[in-house]
Design a protein around this nucleic acid. Sequence first.
RNA 1: GGGAGCUUAGCUCAGCUGGUUCAGAGCAUCUGCCUUACAAGCAGAGGGUCACUGGUUCGAACCCAGUAGCUCCCACCA
Length: 882
Amino acid sequence: MELDKHYNPKAVEDKWYGYWMDKGYFDSKPDEREPYTIVIPPPNVTGVLHMGHMLNNTIQDVLIRKARMEGKNACWVPGTDHASIATEAKVVKMLADQGIMKKDLSRETFLNHAWDWKNKYGGIILEQLKKLGASCDWKRTRFTMEDDLNAAVNDVFVQLFNDGLIYRGTKMVNWDPVGKTTLSDEEVIFKENNSQLYFVTYPFTEETLASGVEGKGLTVATTRPETIMGDVAICVHPEDERYKHLVGKTISVPVIGRVIPIISDDYIDIEFGTGCLKVTPAHDENDYRIGEKYHLEAIDVLTEDGKIHERAGAYIGLDRFACRKQIAKDLEEMGLLQKTEQIKNTVGHSERTDAVIEKRISTQWFVNMQTFLNRHPQVLSSVMNDEIKFYPPKFKNVYKHWMENIKDWNISRQLWWGHRIPAWYNPEGQFVVAENVEKALEQFKKDKPETRIEDLHQDEDVLDTWFSSWLWPISVFDGFKDPKNKDIQYYYPTNDLVTAPEILFFWVARMIMAGYAFNGKLPFRNVYFTGIVRDKLRRKMSKSLGNSPDPLDLIEKYGADGVRMGMLLSSPAGNDILFDESQVEQGRNFCNKIWNAYRLVSGWQVVADTEIDAKILEGNQLSIQWFDMRFKKAVNAIHEDFTAYKLSEALMGVYKLIWDDFCSWYLEMIKPEYGQPIAAQTLATVQADFDRLLALLHPFMPFISEELHTALHNGNPDKPMIVSEYPAFTQNIDEVWDGALSIVTELRTLRNSKGISPKEAFEVLIKTEHSDRYKPWEPIVSKLANISQFKYNQERPEKAISALIGTDEMYIPFAEKIDETLEKKKLEEELNYLRGFLKSVDSKLSNEKFVANAKPDVIEKERQKKADAEEKIHKLIQTLGQ
RNA sequence: GGGAGCUUAGCUCAGCUGGUUCAGAGCAUCUGCCUUACAAGCAGAGGGUCACUGGUUCGAACCCAGUAGCUCCCACCA
């Protein structure tokens, strides 16, 4: 059957993915083999595949497929994350679009809607991963909010609470007025902002004026005039000569006229603004601290959605930003706004909703991280001493810094979609922490036997999503439910984690904590940090910019293998990848190249070896040995690249091996004359070589390699490629001399530069002591360079072009079109170069300090260079007749 | 404000513990080819003061110091 000139991925991909699934090649069960485990960074359950996922999961698939082929028991556990805040936001919006407000719904009804949504859209992303070829063990698919994982979360919460590591406390936390929930510090993104600095005058009270104070009042500089209704003091520096005498006096808050004291504290920066600070303990962390120190009231003037609260006494119900403008205007009219200045400051935004974060005092649940770390020092040490390796290692520093400055982790969220906090309250407001309500009741009954189950109510809040994600490497193997089960014993610790640096703190660090705290072991041994996928202008890919291609469209257009190669081509660990469709084109072109190599090989007519000319057979034999050497060398380099997690270089190694060594050289060497048959034995070897190339390629490009592997075995291979053996590292490789191949290059260059047709044959004269080395190459070189005859050690003809092959001389008699002076010039240039080279080597060798200080093998190398150069110079001089 | 990292060809990146006259790869570019596997291809070619300045050394892209530019992370300055 005639094969198409172009590889057609569509005809191939679904077929093989279905086949692998049917045969269960992705499945893993504990056995006697060495395990190799990866847990997927679970994407948001309602998410859609984007380029970042493509990169991340391609890398994981490369690693897992290679391990599988190396005979390890490869297990890649997939799953999704419930993504509390993101999913809830989506559901709220979806309901709002239908005219349903969350506040009108009961918790139960809302959750029903959310589960409906999850069941409808959840897991689409996993289906998309299949298109990419991801070889996950789908039977193990987990979801962070399924019952077993909820139980794990509850277990851990109770355990940490009982260990004194979780506490309920009233502190200043981050508040997202759009999501209407608190956030951890990590969920707040600080962005530089051009703000207005308002200079607002607070008038002195009559009492103060009566005490003989001069002036009208004090001017403070603030970026947040809308919070002045929450002011409880004006603070100055105790040493500030301008204000010293005012400390202890009173002053009144503009607009509302509340009387507040003037206090002093050395926290104040005399230089900043006017040196007076308005103290608003409810809305600023530093103010909160000052408030606590001087026992000042904290007046929260904002509602949970960022509007002015009625206790503010003015502007009630106005949005905080509208209020800022309004109050500035009003103050100006009152003559209390002195001026405004532009100022650059950083403003916290919610990672999910992008809302400007408010600092707010509230009662939340926290994990005491410092104590946690004190109890588990391996969390830091294991990374620092490379028990857990980071690729690239620069992230070790970042990790260390975070660990050393760790703060308590606010884990409660005012949301419904998530793991509900396992704490129960009695009507008196006392609480206990327990796995479930029954156990909570038991606890209450110890002190209050009369407590009834219907008196108890569970905490309304849910937990931070990461409070379930940090358990992922353990919980996916049911390590909490049944810590002695086979899976957890066998698969944990996992091997590699592939993830983005953005979630180093959110997730990676906390998984390491959870690993040591709840299993006593590290969760993984290597962490590969991917970069951010950007467009070629270095802009981050985003929906709003519209610069992110749809991965599924790309797969449709170029094939999954092409897309995988495109993703991998330029992405060393930790580097951003500048995605350009041309890279995917390169991937597709590569597929096409391989496809055509197959077309060539599959079209050859076979005859018995005896029917082939002996010289050709010998040439083929040599070609085969030569390729074997090239193959083994490349495989070794690829193994080293993998060891260092240099996947793009490993892929480049495969690419060059296939394209250059295999297609451009080897197949051309072996290829019979047009219409001529090939020896059966030779063909069998070429096919075997092709097959092991495909094995090498398979982790990167699973579909085409499986397809052609099968085709090479006439549809019936012993094993499919996915479980074939991966080419192993070779300790000692037999060198095959291939200097004769430079004759080919030499002649091609000659023809190119002189415009001579490849059809014009040449004879070649070689001056060498090793004609035996050249002889076996004669049939090969003749074919590739169209050579009529090889002659050895004859006089140089009058008119000839000469070149050096190593230290041997080569002449191509070439009477007509040759430019003698040009040729001479070329040789002289080479001679000059060699003389310079020799000089530099000589100067090294005659330098006593060099000989004294350099390592012996370096000196030996230099001596060899010297000898080589001298010989070459000698020959060139002869040639030039000088 | 603190910390980390980067700067090598037009682009994206390799260059290990200093040692070939050391400057390399892929892509892009240029030249010539529809040669019966592949024009999504073949064969060639050009292209770089290794950011800058100084130092250490027999020897520096590599080590040290400083300068400039870029990137990222952390941080409560109103």
